[in-house]
Design a protein around this nucleic acid. Structure first.
Length: 980
RNA sequence: GGGCCGGUAGCUCAGGUGGUUAGAGCGCACGCCUGAUAAGCGUGAGGUCGAUGGUUCAACUCCAUCUCGGCCCA
């Protein structure tokens, strides 16, 4: 202690002061503390207790239905953030007074797991065909279980509260049974269709793939220009394609009537010496090309000179297949089809059309009046040419290699087709290019488009009994759904409006079976049989699955389900499984409805909350499934979050080295820092994270923690008996109550609307400015020095108690660990075993007093000028602590002076004295530009320094018994001695 | 290439229907305190509101184009 702080007598009054006293440490030690709190909550069955308490309160239910993460790997920052966000929603609503239950779930079926398990079998020398279906599915189940456990521990470590002992799993037997039940319900609704259309097909995995199962990569491919001779003319239409293997399946050529076409004649070609090869084009050849592309096609064909002969209109032409010399199979006429998908941006202005192998091709084929049944399907499930009428040269060629070291590379089909085209004289040119093309998500091998029979849920077919088409139902349901952020509605609506039929069949093992029996004439039993018979069959299927699980379907034959209902002769059992999106689309049924949480037919979850990518995923699959079965959305509200990016706004990737792992954050900072980060970010957009950003949040944490600590310290020994009625409190306390009431409204509204960043910024401001910089700083003197019986001190402690009670609950959803720690050390600990069993305390509206608050804003305005003036004194070394000053404050505006009515300006300025004077003040007084009419003349406080409160005072006023302290301090010390 | 969304101080965020010198907290710099002390207080410096063009008396706020980034799709 330096000499300046010594007082005349040197008496030490320190132990007569009421300094903050608490066991609540300044630092949280979160990484170590958090797991202990989780264990404690586990032990006390906190989640169950929350449910029981809510039921006792008669609380209104609030259901956030969990979107299931896929059970095939550890959690990462994105999944952690997703679960933390859900936890904020659930805890926030629980404390708002709702019964906010939360059942976490997992998505378990599907290709990624199946692929992984296949790999494991392969490592043991067993191929997929060696492993019986049931054994394979058991292995998949075990694989999913393993990761579910890992993820569960990860999520729990994040402080996410929920029914972890009873999660939902899409692979639970009752879930699978429910999924079958839901599927049959869709089938009976009349929306199921069997179609054959080009879909993405992976020859490597021998399966159809959905959009969600493919990814796009650059790939080097051959590019060819092919001549299609026009019948009855001496010229050819030229097409361009990067899939030579589809030429044998060509059935048409498309053009666009809005493109201008011309007939071109080759005059000269580049010579063989220059090129090293002879160009295929010959002088005199005549081609039809889009005018915009003629030059580039001629360049590619190494034509050095050409002329345009005339305008042409391709409409109505019939072409000859470029391989027509090869086989009778290619003697068929090739029509010209008009289509908007043809452009003159690239290529030739004509598009070779193989309806079995392209979405556009298929559509233009059907649109021009051709039949789906006339589509030539010459590629089998291995991606190999196979058709009885195919010429021998093509039979058995593979498009993509499906095994060995070169798996995924180009097979024999492309080169052989090019060779045959050359032989036929119809190859104009060839080259190599790079395109972005679909690849299987798992094997990374390219996929092809192939027409196969598949099951679809129709978007546009009216439902049974006159029900509206699914698309119409879904669009209507979206109108009735709330969206956070609002742009989500627009996004999902346009997707639903445009989406094709839902392809739900997969030729795989690990999934819920498509429990259909197909009649001899190709109809599913749900249509082929009369409704009552179909229902009988359905009941038999459901009973079997209820008894033995889905294996009952896989192991049975069609007769098992038909005997006695229909003649099983000629019927076939479908062996496909359902798209996993169908599983996840039914989670509302087996999680919420079957458990009695919402009504079977009319119930809805309050919120579905997922990443914005789920507009095309779970939000949509759930919407479509529920609309098909119940005519409404399964949710009232959809909340979406963005994705985590680094400090530059770039997405996280291992190759960029900018990833952050949840475990690493938990160990370095504590997971609560990640929760703080989640809460303070605008989750509706992308969320930026970096080490610096986490450090900033650790600073915020410190401020919040220290505020709690100061309150706990100041409230040492406090009890309700000390409480002062607000009416008897000083103005400053009533101002704090006003701020508390304002904050209460803000906090409640923000929790209702998921606006956590607003809570964070409000709480940080409240703790940092209102409390720490203003209220605590001013009331420190009263708290430390006033007598225990002093009304001002009691009022301060009353207010602090009210503040603590609120802070600890308002922050509990965001900081469950630290608020629990503070709560259990507070005088409120007796109210409940956990802060999480409380709701936000009622905050009387009467605390709100706008006029009073306005008055205090005036006081703070003057105060800012005073602190500014003192800063100058400090800089000039005339004072150190503000108690060494006693300023004169000149105020022109009478209303500003009136604001101080009944207050002690010196206390508010934390000076030893202060004088307010109505007037302009001397010219050299300190002024602030933005506070005109206020002038401060700083002056050193006179008198001696009180040995107890360190305030300067006139010794002549001292109590004779205590000459070295102020009369206020003397009274306090006397009271203490009397009490002792 | 298409659909949707976004780019405000070093960081996280505020900025109804366009209108005086664009705000807050944190961080930073400097100073104070040493009875909240690996804390607390004060003062201060930081922004061509992604860029350009336009509408307007007036634009961070409206329109267009571009750019960067994100999600989804091709």
């Amino acid at each position: 202690m330096n000499d300046d702080t010594k007082t005349a007598t040197g008496n030490d009054y320190r132990d007569t002061l009421f300094l903050p006293k608490t066991e609540f440490p300044m630092r949280g030690g979160l990484p170590k503390a958090e797991p202990k709190w989780i264990a404690r909550w586990d032990e006390m069955r906190l989640y169950d207790r929350m449910r029981e308490d809510a039921k006792k309160r008669g609380a209104k239910p609030f259901i956030l239905h969990d979107g299931p993460p896929y059970a095939n790997g550890p959690i990462h920052l994105g999944t952690a953030m997703n679960k933390i966000l859900k936890d904020l929603v659930v805890r926030g609503h629980q404390m708002l007074g709702y019964d906010a239950s939360y059942i976490p779930g997992w998505d378990c079926h599907g290709l990624p797991i199946e692929w992984k398990v296949e790999e494991e079998f392969r490592a043991k020398g067993r191929t997929k065909d060696d492993v019986p279906g049931d054994e394979f599915r058991r292995a998949c189940r075990a694989y999913a279980e393993k990761w579910i456990e890992v993820q569960k521990q990860g999520f729990r470590r994040c402080g996410v509260e929920g029914d972890w002992d009873h999660p939902y799993l899409t692979m639970n037997y009752e879930s699978e049974a429910a999924t079958v039940r839901e599927f049959l319900r869709v089938a009976m609704s009349g929306r199921l269709v069997r179609g054959s259309k080009p879909i993405m097909w992976s020859p490597v995995e021998r399966t159809a793939l959905a959009e969600a199962e493919v990814e796009y990569h650059d790939r080097k491919v051959p590019v060819i220009w092919v001549k299609f001779p026009v019948q009855g003319e001496d010229f050819s239409v030229v097409i361009w394609t990067t899939t030579p293997w589809t030429i044998p399946a060509n059935q048409a050529v498309s053009f666009n009537p809005s493109i201008s076409y011309g007939l071109y004649e080759v005059e000269s070609v580049m010579n063989e010496e220059e090129l090293g090869f002879a160009p295929f084009a010959k002088p005199g050849d005549k081609y039809v090309l889009a005018d915009a592309l003629a030059q580039s096609v001629m360049d590619s064909a190494k034509v050095s000179g050409f002329k345009r002969l005339q305008d042409v209109n391709p409409e109505g032409w019939t072409l000859t297949h470029p391989l027509h010399t090869l086989s009778d199979f290619y003697k068929h006429p090739i029509p010209m089809l008009a289509g908007d998908h043809v452009t003159d941006d690239a290529g030739t202005g004509f598009v070779h059309t193989a309806p079995a192998h392209g979405e556009d091709d298929f559509l233009v084929w059907i649109a021009s009046g051709h039949k789906a049944s006339d589509i030539r399907d010459i590629v089998n499930e291995d991606g190999v040419y196979e058709h009885p009428d195919l010429p021998d040269a093509l039979q058995g060629l593979d498009i993509i290699r499906t095994s060995g070291k070169k798996r995924g590379e180009q097979g024999k089909a492309n080169p052989e087709v090019m060779r045959l085209l050359t032989e036929a004289g119809n190859l104009l040119s060839r080259g190599v290019t790079t395109i972005r093309d679909a690849h299987s998500w798992r094997s990374k091998a390219p996929v092809i488009r192939r027409a196969t029979p598949q099951w679809f849920i129709s978007m546009d077919k009216p439902g049974a009994n006159g029900a509206a088409p699914l698309r119409e139902l879904a669009l209507k349901a979206l109108e009735d759904t709330g969206f956070t952020p609002p742009s989500g509605r627009n996004r999902i609506t346009s997707m639903v409006a445009d989406r094709p039929d839902w392809l739900i069949s997969r030729q795989r093992n690990w999934g819920v079976p498509i429990t259909l029996l197909v009649s001899p004439d190709g109809q599913p039993h749900t249509y082929a049989l009369p409704e009552d018979k179909a229902n009988e069959v359905n009941k038999r299927i459901l009973d079997a699955i209820a008894a033995e699980g889905v294996e009952a379907w896989f192991s049975a034959d069609a007769a098992t389900f038909l005997d006695g209902i229909a003649d099983p002769a000629g019927w076939e059992k479908v062996t496909d499984v359902l798209d996993v999106w169908f599983d996840s689309g039914t989670t509302h049924a087996f999680t919420l409805r079957d458990r009695g949480i919402i009504d079977e037919n009319s119930g809805q979850a309050d919120v579905y909350l997922e990443g914005s990518d789920q507009h095309r995923g779970w939000f949509q699959s759930s919407l479509l499934e529920c609309c098909a079965t119940r005519g409404m959305a399964p949710y009232k509200q959809v909340v979406t979050h963005g994705f985590i990016v680094d400090s530059e706004g770039k997405k996280m990737s291992k190759s960029l080295g900018n990833t952050v792992e949840p475990e690493q954050v938990a160990n370095q900072f504590g997971i609560e820092i990640l929760r703080l980060w989640t809460a303070s970010s605008d989750f509706t957009e992308d969320l930026r994270i970096s080490d610096d950003i986490l450090k900033t949040n650790a600073e915020s944490y410190r401020r919040l923690r220290n505020t709690l600590r100061y309150l706990l310290g100041a409230l040492d020994g406090y009890s309700e008996a000390e409480a002062v009625d607000p009416a008897d409190m000083p103005g400053l306390e009533r101002w704090v109550l006003h701020r508390l009431a304002e904050s209460d409204a803000l906090v409640r509204k923000s929790y209702e609307t998921f606006d956590y960043k607003r809570i964070m910024s409000a709480m940080l401001n409240f703790c940092g400015v209102d409390l720490s910089a203003i209220y605590f700083d001013i009331r420190k003197d009263s708290l430390y020095c006033d007598a225990p019986s002093d009304n001002r001190r009691k009022a301060a402690r009353t207010v602090m108690s009210l503040v603590l009670e609120r802070l600890v609950t308002w922050l509990a959803p965001i900081m469950p660990f630290t608020t629990e720690e503070a709560f259990l050390m507070s005088q409120f600990a007796g109210r409940a075993d956990s802060v999480h069993l409380l709701t936000f305390p009622d905050t009387p509206k009467s605390w709100l007093d706008a006029a009073h608050a306005a008055r205090w804003e005036k006081i703070f305005k003057v105060r800012r000028v005073v602190t500014g003036a003192l800063e100058v004194e400090r800089r000039e070394k005339r004072i150190g602590a503000s108690l060494e000053a006693s300023p004169e404050v000149y105020i022109e505006d009478k209303t500003l002076i009136d604001a101080f009515e009944g207050e002690s300006p010196a206390d508010l300025f934390i000076t030893s004295g202060a004088k307010l004077v109505h007037g302009e003040g001397p010219a050299d007084a300190y002024r602030l530009e933005d506070t005109p009419g206020v002038a401060v003349v700083p002056a050193k406080a006179s008198g001696v320094k009180c040995a107890r409160s360190w305030k300067y005072f006139d010794p002549a006023t001292a109590d004779p018994e205590f000459p070295d302290i102020t009369p206020r301090d003397a009274a306090a010390v006397r009271e203490l001695r009397g009490a002792a």
